Amino acid sequence: MAEYHGPEGPHLAAAVDDAAPALLAAWDAARERATPRVSWPQLNALLVVEREEGINLRGLAGQLKMILSSASRLCDRLVASGMVERVPGRADRREIALFLTPSSRQLLHDLRATRREILAEVLDRMSPAGRSALIRGLAEFSAAAAAETDGNQARTA
């Protein structure tokens, strides 16, 4: 990703980078409270399967930027823990499609609820103007990041 060269130069990017650990700490605290506890790689895999129901193992490995054998072992652990189901593909029975189980859907729901509670506690300590600015800024940041991702996908397609 290109370095930010706007009017504030690299100072703005450094300020965002310095603030990001507080946000990441909220995500990690929610993950730590999840039952059953899941590792970051397991959580990322569940989120990919949730976003792309029926994804195959090769697609999962690509999304997670892992080699196929590592993604397979990760998937094996998720299947053994009852978090993911393997289903033969509709078009090609040799291909395996991955789906979330009801327990993993509940886990993700609970994780998001906990994360939002943690974030709400922090947001309550901010001024109304600060909260509004944060929401506007994050929405614009998200849109800019999505545009970058869409542009990268279009270039590789």
Rank of each mutant, 00 (worst) to 15 (best):
S70A: 03
D76A: 06
A71N: 01
I67N: 11
G82T: 09
V84G: 03
I67T: 04
R86Q: 11
V87C: 14
C75G: 02
M83K: 11
A91M: 14
R86G: 06
L78F: 04
L68H: 12
V79M: 04
G82W: 09
E95P: 03
A80I: 05
A91E: 14
A80S: 13
S72N: 02
G89H: 10
A80K: 12
P88G: 07
S72W: 05
S81E: 13
V79C: 05
S69G: 00
V84H: 04
V87M: 14
V87P: 11
V84M: 03
E95F: 11
E85F: 09
I96N: 10
M83N: 09
R94G: 13
R93C: 07
L74A: 02
M83F: 12
R94S: 15
D92G: 04
P88Q: 07
R94N: 15
E85S: 11
D92E: 13
G82D: 08
R90N: 05
E85Y: 08
R86T: 05
L74H: 03
S70Y: 00
L74T: 02
G82I: 09
R73S: 04
A71L: 02
R77K: 11
P88I: 06
L68S: 03
L78I: 02
V79D: 03
V87E: 15
P88L: 06
V84C: 02
S72I: 00
I67C: 03
I96W: 12
V84S: 02
R86P: 04
A71V: 01
C75W: 01
V79T: 09
L78R: 02
L74R: 03
C75P: 00
D76N: 05
I67E: 09
S70E: 01
G82H: 06
G89V: 07
G89I: 09
A71H: 02
V84I: 13
R94E: 15
A80R: 12
A91I: 14
R73N: 07
A71Q: 00
R94K: 15
L68F: 11
R93V: 11
R77V: 11
E95T: 14
V87L: 15
A80P: 01
R93G: 07
R77L: 12
A80D: 14
P88W: 06
R77T: 13
P88H: 08
A80L: 12
S69P: 00
A91Y: 14
S72H: 05
R77P: 01
